[in-house]
């Protein structure tokens, strides 16, 4: 029983402390050019622009696509595995953010 009590927190820890990080999209730019996350963290993208945006990554294992974000809307993605990816807006390719998960 003692062994179980010691191991359980170690298993839960990575996701118990997962954080939400907010990135705004304004003036056709992300508020950060790079960010480092822990596995399990969420990135929340807030479109504060007057134009639609998108966030996608084309590289495995972080491949995803959040579709269209209308002005004023939010979208989020959870990063489970370690690695590095460059996220982009498919509509405005100058919008880039480098994400490192470790």
């Amino acid at each position: 029983m003692k062994r179980f009590l010691v191991i359980l927190p170690l298993v839960i820890t990575p996701f118990a402390f997962a954080k939400d990080h907010i990135i705004t999209q304004k003036g056709k730019a992300f508020s950060e050019s790079e960010i480092t996350l822990a596995p399990g963290d969420n990135l929340i993208f807030k479109n504060d622009d007057d134009t639609s945006h998108n966030v996608f990554s084309a590289v495995e294992p972080m491949k995803f696509n959040l579709g269209i974000q209308k002005p004023g809307s939010e979208a989020s993605h959870k990063f489970d595995s370690a690695g590095v990816a460059e996220l982009r807006c498919a509509i405005h390719p100058k919008m880039k953010i480098k994400v490192t998960v470790k």
Partner: peptide, 29 residues
Amino acid sequence: DEGFYDIGLAGDDKGRGKILGDIETLQYA
């Protein structure tokens, strides 16, 4: 702005939509 837009020209060329096919806004862009 180096962006991709459907500006409402007639035609069946889907432009950026052929490259990133699953986003509606990029069809004919």
